[in-house]
Design a protein around this nucleic acid. Structure first.
Lengths: 212, 212
DNA sequence: AAATATGTGTCAATTTATTCACATGTATAG
DNA sequence: CTATACATGTGAATAAATTGACACATATTT
């Protein structure tokens, strides 16, 4: 087990936010920042920020703080943003197309090579320059193009079936938008985007705030 | 402050998953379940499930377990799924259109009345039966139609500006897809969907799993 | 109808996460 | 070149979350 894998998920989930603010600071031309200042930006405590960063190394300097550019670069490496991956999307509906068009993707090192669907009406269409192909050819496509990431934007009932195809084809990670928990072997990474759950949480806080 | 608002956010964020599995159990015609069985389904420990549910009341019965339908209904009430809200979307791009088409929405009690955009090329178009309108009319629309939820699916640079319009128009909650932290007064509820961050996390776990 | 099995609700124990506090090193001002 | 302010990294203290354990009530079996 490598060093990073014993850092708690709680800490990991805060890293993207640090990375985002550091990127904004670079854009503003700010080259130096203290944990105190980062605390104001992110809303985490300065102490927590120092603890978090120290899981990965001592990036700061006493009396100075952190060099923005260096720290951003380091966080990028920790998050694996320097590695490029090929991806495909199954489900060329609205959400699938939105994802294929999504710019933020490239920032994370992912490139969508193709969308797949079963609906003959969309097969052959192009989103930007990304073609929608027939599901029939997905397995060979994945193998031929060295695709490592599979994205699922279908309704929940077909999600597991698609995950199985992905696994069979040798994919390493799945980005799942379907509201279901996928069953996968230990060596496959799954990251879920739970739109429902997010909405439910919004609903909960609306209720508790206004329903007395 | 009411009872529910002192339940920790950590607990709240688990409720949608309970609700989802209970809904599936209802569909399968299962009427009774123990915390132990729910534990197998959800991956949370039985003890944790009992603790979580007990924050809101004793829904179970010793020697029997929980009545699936009752518990699902109770969780629905806790999450506020019995309340209906009108919503609008700003940003009629791919993501905005995907959201407007999204069925899971109605399950949470939200109804999208209209999309808004600045791009003259999309104004006037209809997504299902939802019209895309000019941003110019958004404030009066919100006030006239009793809209309580504002959704943001624009790039990050305009997100705060749109939030300000929402706030000025009297909206209560914002569902934000832009990768930025919105500044809002205390009485506005914001729920963020961080697609970037989710991707970064996927990237991180891919890296730590395969990069030794 | 009694005996046994089941399973909740809850309090206590443990583990994990966050905050505090400060010794130590570096930058900056005079 | 010295003095002062700054701000990290870290170990200890506190707080929060999770798990364990069991008394007690209900269901089920015989």
């Amino acid at each position: 087990m490598n060093r990073e894998s014993q850092v708690s998920v709680t800490v990991i989930r805060r890293l993207p936010k640090y990375h985002r603010y550091l990127t904004e600071l670079i854009e503003k031309g700010i080259s130096r920042i203290s944990s105190q200042e980062l605390s104001v930006l992110t809303g985490f405590t300065a102490s927590q920020i120092r603890q978090d960063l120290n899981n990965f190394g001592g990036f700061g300097q006493q009396g100075y703080g952190y060099n923005v550019e260096d720290l951003q670069k380091e966080l990028g490496k920790i998050l694996g943003l320097d590695t490029r991956y090929n991806a495909v999307v199954v489900g060329a509906g609205n959400l699938g197309q939105a994802i294929a068009n999504y710019k933020g993707f490239e920032d994370a090192g992912f490139k969508v090579l193709s969308l797949f669907d079963r609906n003959p009406r969309v097969i052959g269409l192009k989103i930007r320059d990304i073609e929608i192909r027939d599901m029939e050819h997905i397995e060979e496509f994945i193998k031929e193009h060295n695709v490592e990431i599979g994205i699922i934007t279908t309704p929940k009932d077909s999600a597991q079936q698609i995950a199985d195809i992905y696994i069979r084809s040798g994919i390493k990670g799945i980005w799942n938008f379907a509201p279901t928990d996928l069953q996968v072997p230990d060596d496959i990474v799954v990251e879920n985007v739970r739109l429902n759950e997010s909405l439910f949480i919004l609903s909960y806080f609306l209720k508790t705030k206004f329903d007395k």
